[in-house]
Computed example of a mutant assay.
Amino acid sequence: MNKRVIIFLSVLFVPVLVLAGILCFTQRNNSSDNNIVINGSSKVVEGEDLRVVFVDFVENEDRYDLVAKVENPNELLGFSDFSYIFKVLDEQDELLLEKEGRSFILPKESKYLIELGISLDKKPKRVKLEIIPGIWQELKAYKTPSFIVLNQRYNIEDKRTVLSGLLQNNSLFSFAKVSVNAILLGSGNKVVGVNRTFAGQLLSGEERYIEFLWRGKLSEDVDIELKVEVNVFQSESYMNVYGEKVGYERDVKSKKK
């Protein structure tokens, strides 16, 4: 079985993977309202808008998975929290569904936005993505968490496809909130499957079995991207807090003034 596994960490810069067929993208710009707090003082900053690499949907039997890849071009600024809306359209460009979500993005990060198991009355034609930015935050002093996935297995069974492995935290720190996104890329780097699992708490040196399930048989010839995500902006993501952080609550208050 021809497959290649790539493991990405959410705190690392991930090279841009350009896929064919960018669909549509809009972004609200509220940068004039964006404040950050540095050493107790507030100042207005204007970061570059997030960039969208692609937006697409994947049919999974009678349901659909929505996926977009976005990148943050800013060296030091990111969002600890931002909103996005997938807008699913039919052949006549009529709106079938809006699906809202929230995520975070770190400086110089490239990441996937995923919404799974969407039920629709008719087959979609294309998808738009709208991003509603949050408050820019500066992230300077942080150490890169280190994860690896051991014993990776990609099996196509009679009625399902299974990807599994052992997620190992090789960092010096223990994390309270860890999730992993799986992206399957087929011919021409076309997305043929997306999924997500939550590992929860992961102590330093601990291993956790992770598994991704898809209904039906997916392609055997795929490249696999595993993206481990930890929101380093939020202190509750850690069981051991480290480094100098910009307080999210203080940023929210500064915006209201």
Rank of each mutant, 00 (worst) to 15 (best):
N151V: 04
I118T: 10
F104V: 02
N35S: 09
K257M: 12
S83A: 13
E98Q: 13
K99V: 15
N30P: 00
K256N: 07
N39W: 04
N155F: 09
L50K: 06
F147K: 01
Y238K: 04
S164M: 11
R63D: 11
V53K: 02
Q92F: 10
N60A: 10
P145I: 10
I36F: 10
L185Q: 01
Y248K: 14
Q234G: 04
P15C: 05
R126P: 00
K143R: 12
K159F: 12
F57L: 01
F82G: 02
Q137C: 02
K177V: 11
V16Q: 11
L172T: 10
P133T: 04
Y112C: 06
D93R: 15
E249I: 11
D65K: 03
N29T: 07
N60S: 12
E71A: 07
E59F: 01
N30H: 06
N195S: 15
V191I: 15
N29L: 09
I105W: 08
L96W: 05
R196D: 02
G134E: 02
I118Y: 00
N39S: 14
D65C: 06
A199T: 06
R196K: 15
S171E: 06
V178D: 01
G40Q: 06
A68I: 04
N2Y: 09
R153Q: 13
Q152I: 14
K125C: 05
S146I: 15
G200R: 08
L95P: 04
S235N: 11
F13M: 10
K177C: 04
R51Y: 07
V58W: 00
D65Q: 05
G117M: 06
K159C: 06
T26D: 10
L96T: 04
L97N: 06
E220T: 09
Y248W: 10
N74C: 08
A141S: 12
L77S: 01
E130N: 10
V246H: 05
I210H: 04
E91I: 09
V67Y: 00
N35Y: 15
N151R: 14
V58T: 01
S31Y: 12
I210W: 03
A20M: 07
S187P: 00
E75I: 08
I114D: 01
S42L: 08
I156W: 04
N30F: 11
G117E: 13
N39L: 12
V14W: 02
S110H: 03
A68S: 15
L77K: 05
N170C: 09
N231P: 01
S10T: 11
I135V: 09
N170Y: 03
Y209N: 09
E100K: 14
S146K: 13
V192P: 00
E249R: 12
F198S: 12
S80D: 12
S42C: 11
N155S: 14
S41L: 11
N74W: 07
F8Q: 11
V53Q: 09
N29K: 13
W136Y: 15
A182W: 00
F233G: 03
T144R: 09
V180I: 13
A199I: 07
L129W: 02
S164H: 07
N60L: 11
I210G: 05
M1V: 14
L218H: 04
V14F: 03
M239K: 11
K87Y: 04
G165W: 00
N170E: 12
V178Y: 00
P145W: 08
S80F: 08
K143A: 08
E211R: 15
P15F: 02
V127P: 00
I118D: 04
P145N: 10
L226M: 07
D93H: 12
